[in-house]
């Protein structure tokens, strides 16, 4: 899932300074699971903002609502009747959600309350680790299920480099060498031959915004045209 961290309170407060009526919007999916921007985090942030603005003698009126997913227009529809009465929107969703919200309500200033951080896993409650850089060229099948793009400091598709040092990475002795881990995992599975495969360099399609259309689906305009 997408992992996010709440922005420092001062930064959020600063963004909202010119506004006196703001709707704080949580997202019920990834950011709710990683405890950054769900219904509860909306309540805590609103309580903080309410108190801070009272202390500044500049009270703010705050609304709160958490949609199922801010990255889905279908779930934003419920906000149509609400946003009109607010001067600005404060989104606790990931960057994708914030942008979809801003696209749906272009006349409203939309501010992010979290910093979207990475695609990761839930190691324990409140503890998340990065696992994927969404490079669009997954090699996990060849690397024993360990991502070299994410776990190797150089993001090497073919490793290790000369900096590997008894299982550690040259950047830090506490940082494991991803390619050492890959070697160990493949060795365990009796698939060491796999490490010899040369993977072509990542094309880094993410330099430009990507689009995915799953098999059996079309862009709405193409579907309407009967293509």
């Amino acid at each position: 899932m997408i992992i996010a961290k709440r922005k420092p309170f001062e930064e959020i407060k600063e963004m909202l300074t010119p506004y006196n009526k703001v709707l704080t919007l949580g997202c019920g999916t990834c950011v709710a699971v990683c405890l950054a921007g769900g219904e509860k985090e909306v309540a805590v942030l609103n309580a903080e903002l309410d108190m801070a603005r009272k202390l500044d003698n500049n009270p703010i009126e705050l609304g709160a609502f958490t949609v199922e997913r801010q990255c889905d227009m279908e779930y934003l529809e419920v906000l149509d009747s609400m946003v009109g009465e607010y001067e600005a929107l404060l989104s606790m969703a990931c960057g994708a959600g914030v942008q979809f919200l801003a696209e749906r309500y272009p006349e409203k200033p939309v501010f992010p309350a979290v910093d979207t951080t990475f695609i990761g896993v839930n190691r324990a409650v409140g503890w998340y680790e990065e696992r994927c850089r969404s490079c669009s060229s997954c090699v996990l099948g060849m690397t024993g299920g360990i991502c070299p793009v994410t776990m190797c400091a150089k993001g090497l598709f073919n490793g290790p480099c000369g900096g590997t040092n008894k299982g550690s990475c040259e950047i830090d002795k506490d940082q494991p060498c991803a390619w050492y881990l890959i070697y160990e995992r493949l060795s365990l599975q009796g698939r060491l031959d796999s490490i010899k495969n040369i993977s072509p360099a990542v094309e880094w399609q993410n330099q430009a915004p990507r689009t995915v259309i799953q098999p059996g689906y079309k862009k709405p305009d193409e579907a309407e045209a009967g293509n």
Binding site: V44, E48, M51, A52, L55
Partner: peptide, 8 residues
Amino acid sequence: MLLEEIGM
């Protein structure tokens, strides 16, 4: 921590 953050 939250209270310190808002100046209380």
